[in-house]
Design a protein around this nucleic acid. Structure first.
Lengths: 194, 194
DNA sequence: TTTTTTGTTGATTGACGAGTCAATAAACTT
DNA sequence: AAGTTTATTGACTCGTCAATCAACAAAAAA
């Protein structure tokens, strides 16, 4: 049976299964068995490839952040002008791929993980820095020295909207979230122009 | 040894210890033993009074929300005019009592708890509704029909600022958080006046 | 004073779960 | 063909932990 080159396939399956299970259970209290089962293999194999449950969690976190990062990069590349770039970041943040129950639930739990696992904290900090720097550089041309402050409030708002999504029942509404964030941005810009 | 009327004392001690331990560990992975030890009693006694760990968590959550609610009510009673009331709500939200590491860490974990424990979800929903209704009624006189939208974005921002506080190292800075939220509010109001 | 209620804990149960290990098998190398 | 590497799992170890129980102590009630 053993086909060679299974490692990347298995790892990918485990990462995906980890995210799904965390989203389904709603916490990090998922067993390696559950994850392995969903990924279609034995728990022992999961340990074989990742060494520990914590490593699986971190790999899942990296995966989600990689997806998000790629989407943001794509949006930035396609955007025209500073405002277009901000709109791109926001749309990417609340795109169907990122702003779905599973992923949002996973984010929330990664936040918790970051409180006790330094590597998780580091990863989250990287994400925050990147988001901030993207926002600041897009805001600079239209908001000048107020760019930093606006980036901070926009960033907090994005996180807050994610948080609230977790509690809501019903399908996620990315468009509404983008609209709210954009309205906030517009308000800040108008204020600055006064 | 048995002094009568211990129940409320023991329960209060356990609730406090639960919050401290959750904050310290940074997750809901605290054992009843840890909590009981910090509260100065045996694990068995903790079970005796609360029946289960989940009940302890819920009691801790209710406690934090009660404290927060009381502070908001106090601020509202003392506030003058609509803007004063909003400022009061914000100041209460980021007051040293509520906006401290322990409490913020506990909030984050309650959010996670809400994903799997219906009663926790209910409690959190109550909090959100109350916050929203407080904000809307304070905003109505100065923002008219835009009150709801502004309340939503302000609410998301408050939650987002809490979330970010968790990651930050260093002492919490409630004043900065209030300032950010107020700036946002002001921006929205100015925009409305245009 | 007997009985009941309240407080309290050490010891135990029973379940569960992370991680290990030994064994099997198929491919690939030499 | 012999040896090595990769894939895979069932069975097991070891630890932990929520919850229960039996027992003891002291106050209150009868």
């Amino acid at each position: 049976m053993p086909k060679l080159g299974m490692e990347p396939i298995r790892k990918a399956a485990l990462v995906k299964a980890t995210i799904v299970e965390i989203g389904r259970v709603g916490s990090l209290d998922v067993t390696v068995s559950q994850i392995a089962k969903r990924a279609g293999m034995s728990p022992a194999l999961a340990h074989h490839y990742f060494g520990s449950k914590e490593e699986m969690f971190l790999a899942a976190m990296r995966h989600i952040m990689t997806l998000y990062g790629a989407e943001v990069r794509g949006a930035l590349a396609a955007a025209e002008g500073p405002e277009g770039r901000i709109r791109g970041i926001l749309r990417a943040s609340f795109s169907p791929g990122n702003f779905r129950r599973e992923a949002v639930g996973a984010w929330l739990n990664f936040w918790v993980l970051a409180q006790s696992v330094p590597e998780a904290k580091r990863l989250l900090a990287v994400y925050q820095r990147r988001l901030r720097s993207n926002l600041v550089s897009a805001l600079r041309p239209i908001a000048g020295e107020r760019a930093e402050g606006i980036a901070d409030s926009l960033g907090a708002m994005i996180d807050g909207l994610y948080l609230r999504e977790v509690l809501k029942s019903g399908a996620p509404d990315g468009a509404a979230a983008v609209a709210l964030a954009l309205r906030h941005l517009e308000a800040e810009l108008v204020r600055g122009a006064v």
